[in-house]
Design a protein around this nucleic acid. Structure first.
Lengths: 130, 130, 130, 130
DNA sequence: GTGGTCTAGACCACA
DNA sequence: GTGGTCTAGACCACA
């Protein structure tokens, strides 16, 4: 279900947090569905349960999952997760625009690049290259 | 010339690398101009010379500066630096667009947010709040 | 009669204990009235009988209910339960006041906040938002 | 500087987080002052560095401290910490008022108890019993 | 069975 | 030296 990339230089718990939230956003993990147990997932990924635990803690802190003691962890409201992710994206976009301005990229140039980006992405999707 | 933010969570060498490249992009540090010596800058910023050295190495790796043994470090071609930074920004933008698509942000919504971002940024600049 | 909130982070037995004592305090469960049997309640709530058992034990420890072997569990004196709960609340209040003093909240400010709190609570009640 | 209470049933990292934030609120740890290093504090308290680390992480998440890689952790703006704590107290107060209403404690009774609480607290302070 | 806390101890990045 | 991540493994609370 989840694959970690050993070449990715981010810590394991961070990669895992992202992979899991992607699965929730994509609807692969649905509302109120149980996540694999900390131990099971740790065994599957050949990592330490503490590392998985740390991801689950972070996901709970963000409100993406909720945990019932003795029972397990479950997916929260998918719509809320998606909304939260949108906010994160728009915040990143604002930061990127500040940088763009600092190197004299005009709004028009930026927009053109956005068009290109969306076109490429949709092409990639059609070709299944993602 | 450079001010480091102790509350910035990035490592010092990374902040310094960014500040210096910003100065080159903005043209404050001009082509072939000498950068302060590692020791001078370290003393000015009250940081470890090793940390400054690390930034200089990173800037050299990127081709932003060149080092002449026994003479010091000098700024490379400003235009190239700016071009390089633009590429970095556009690469980040592509990544952000992929994420946007995954949460069903349409190209139109994205564009709208870009407009807002540019408008806010220019307002901030006029008011000197940056 | 009782609804558990799966997203509440407290353990189930603790939520159940509170819900049941609230019902006794509110007089929904009256003096000497029988509580549902452990098995019945467990089935109704789709939880483990051990969990219900644990709540009943806790309620008995507090003197809120009494158990007659072979017959079941029964509500104790409602007035006493309410009195006990009041004591708990006032104890919490004292602790909160100590904390308030540590951050220099004056008695006047505290009182003002109490007024606001009561006003909001009564508004909520009128609007049925609880 | 900090003493842990083995009778306190809360986890060590939570007690420690509270003790440290109390020291910051009381001004014992002042703005931009360095906290003891993770290893030092762990040794002093005879607990594992990971446990101290967890407290520091939580304090950073709350904005009470900031961490500079390779240098250590430092106290943030004391005023902000105090303000944050005030909000926590007022939130707890609101919850307590809801409970008070459920057992028919009138606003007047509640106010009376607040007065008593403040009076006792100030007496305790004068007698140094805290 | 489930998650939560903690220890002992290693190894890494950064200053 | 500093903090950050991770493992191996124990023990606890809860269902």
């Amino acid at each position: 279900m989840v694959l970690l990339d050993s070449k990715d230089r981010r810590p394991i718990y961070e990669q895992l947090t992202e992979k899991l939230s992607d699965l929730m956003i994509a609807g692969v993990l649905k509302e109120d569905e149980a996540l694999p147990s900390v131990r099971t997932l740790a065994a599957d990924l050949s990592i330490n349960p503490n590392t998985v635990q740390r991801s689950y803690l972070e996901l709970e802190r963000r409100g993406y999952i909720y945990t019932v003691k003795g029972k397990g962890s479950f997916v929260s409201d998918n719509a809320k997760i998606q909304e939260h992710k949108k906010q994160l994206i728009f915040t990143s976009l604002d930061a990127l625009i500040s940088q763009a301005i600092s190197v004299n990229i005009s709004e028009t140039d930026f927009m053109r690049q956005v068009s290109v980006g969306f076109r490429n992405a949709s092409t990639n999707l059609r070709e299944g290259s993602l």
